[in-house]
């Protein structure tokens, strides 16, 4: 079980990486932590001809709060373990660290990166579900500079994203939650570290007019349900927001996502969504 032959170039900077990725003569892919791509290479289900190492690009290793808007700018090469260990500024009242601590195994978290996981876009992975829940924006760099993509539209299907070639995912901008924000992120895995069979996420942050429920680990992009604006008024309560997500609405969303035909899968997603609601209000 050995990888097929490929070339490797260590990129020195983001422009360098973008330029290397622009080579259309060969099938070229970025390699970050390699924790998803590595297995695919060894199993010979991916056959890139040229891998561009981006893990060591200095600009991708930053994590800081943007003084302009208080957002967390999370460099694409920040590793899960760094988030787990609280080594990045937290604007999410612990959500990012909670999610990070339950990705795969520690040895994988030590190497796997936020950007790599997002770009890989496995529906069962955690950041592709967490970032839409948070309303984050994905920053990508191309030949003509950077652009931002709403995380809720970043993933376009299983293992596919809104990244255009030769764009490189460089950072995630995570908005700061208010002090009143309540969240939950629950997932069902057969074993710790295994890919989730269902993810439920809830974020209620009325001061920022956010009431969001996420159904993740679907067959494609996660389902994001936004609570009606009127429920997010100052006079309402978090419970009222939560009550909006009735079983009927959740089932309809599950069916709309195309995963309702399998009763077990549908039930798991319903259970996770309900438990996320309960946990967020707890």
């Amino acid at each position: 079980m050995k990888a097929p032959a490929f070339d490797f170039t260590q990129a020195q900077s983001v422009p360098d990486a973008v330029a290397l990725l622009a080579d259309t003569a060969r099938f070229t892919k970025p390699l970050a932590g390699g924790q998803s791509l590595g297995p695919m290479l060894n199993l010979r289900v991916a056959f890139p001809e040229h891998l561009i190492g981006v893990r060591q690009i200095e600009a991708l290793r930053h994590a800081f709060i943007d003084p302009a808007n208080g957002e967390l700018v999370l460099g694409a090469a920040v590793r899960h373990a760094q988030i787990e260990d609280g080594l990045i500024p937290d604007v999410t009242r612990g959500l990012l660290a909670h999610v990070a601590a339950n990705i795969a195994y520690r040895a994988v978290r030590n190497r796997g990166t936020v950007g790599g996981s997002l770009a890989h876009a496995d529906p069962a992975a955690d950041w592709v579900n967490t970032m839409p829940l948070l309303g984050a924006r994905i920053v990508v760099a191309g030949p003509d500079g950077e652009r931002e993509i709403d995380a809720r539209t970043f993933m376009t299907g299983p293992f596919t994203t809104a990244l255009d070639e030769p764009e490189l995912l460089v950072a995630v901008r995570v908005p700061a939650l208010s002090d009143a924000a309540r969240w939950a992120y629950v997932k069902f895995c057969r074993k710790p570290g295994e890919f989730a069979e269902a993810v439920g996420g809830v974020l209620i942050d009325r001061p920022r007019a956010v009431g969001r429920l996420l159904i993740g680990a679907t067959d494609g992009a996660p389902v994001v349900l936004e609570a009606p604006t009127e429920l997010l008024a100052a006079s309402s309560t978090d419970s009222q927001v939560a009550e909006h997500w009735t079983d009927d609405r959740l089932r309809a969303a599950i069916n709309a996502a195309g995963i309702g035909h399998d009763p077990y899968v549908a039930q798991l997603h319903l259970t996770m969504a309900r438990r996320a609601i309960v946990a967020a209000l707890a």
């Binding site: 309900r274 438990r275 609601i277 946990a279």
Partner: peptide, 17 residues
């Protein structure tokens, strides 16, 4: 559980996260 006709969904929400 489903085959037994039990309303599993009715208890699903009671579990802890």
């Amino acid at each position: 559980i489903a085959a037994a006709g039990s309303a599993a969904g009715a208890v699903a929400g009671r579990g802890a996260a």
